[in-house]
């Protein structure tokens, strides 16, 4: 463990908590893409199948359980409890266009052709594009609530910090995982224009409005 990965994990946890609180407190999931939340739940389920078979550390197991419970809880709130506030008219990204190619790629490009490894690879590739429905939805509505932009900033920062962690681990341990690194770079690049808008607008107190 290193400080970059720890801050990255905490940023990820913060993002998930921000979203959960936003939906729970406002009792509304307006402006939030349920499809992205479904994809994130799928990412955690396919990645953490070894939760009970492969103990790494207490921290590792506790965080995995928190991620699984909070992401599934968010999906539950969006599609059941506060379903009336779910904006399905703007959340129209075809996620099969993500899941199918990612599924195919995870069979073709992986470290080891075993079920657990292919599912882990699927989860890494899927996570890199899971935010697309959310970014697509914001581009359609042309704006995002400030709390949603804080969520996106924390979520985007987590994988950017993981990239720093991978550079650090490469130079200190000689460890690197090309699949995770390439997918992590794609994932972080997808946030770039949002990061620009967030820093130039939201941090100056303005509403996040995408150029229509």
């Amino acid at each position: 463990m290193n400080v970059f990965r720890l801050v990255g994990d905490l940023s990820h946890l913060l993002a998930i908590i921000i979203l959960l609180l936003k939906i729970w407190k406002t009792r509304s999931c307006a402006g939030v893409s349920g499809k992205s939340q479904i994809l994130f739940s799928l990412v955690f389920i396919t990645r953490y199948l070894d939760l009970f078979t492969n103990f790494i550390s207490v921290y590792n197991s506790v965080m995995k359980i928190i991620y699984l419970v909070t992401s599934l809880g968010t999906v539950y709130l969006m599609y059941f409890k506060f379903k009336a506030t779910y904006d399905s008219n703007h959340d129209t990204f075809r996620i099969e266009f993500l899941v199918v190619p990612v599924g195919g790629l995870s069979f073709l490009v992986n470290h080891d052709f075993t079920p657990l490894e292919i599912l882990w690879t699927f989860s890494i590739y899927l996570e890199s594009v899971a935010i697309l429905p959310q970014l697509f939805m914001i581009s359609k509505t042309g704006e995002a609530e400030t709390i949603t932009s804080h969520y996106l900033f924390a979520l985007g920062s987590y994988r950017a910090l993981y990239i720093v962690n991978w550079v650090y681990r490469y130079y200190t341990e000689g460890f690197f995982d090309l699949i995770a690194i390439v997918a992590g770079c794609v994932q972080t690049i997808l946030y770039c224009d949002f990061f620009y808008l967030y820093i130039t607008k939201v941090l100056k107190g303005k509403q996040l409005k995408l150029p229509a």
Binding site: R5, N54, I56, S57, N60, M63, K64, Y67, H111
Partner: peptide, 10 residues
């Protein structure tokens, strides 16, 4: 080596 490739990252 790949054998002890324990996935210790979240």
């Amino acid at each position: 080596d790949l054998e002890e490739d324990t996935k210790d990252e979240l």
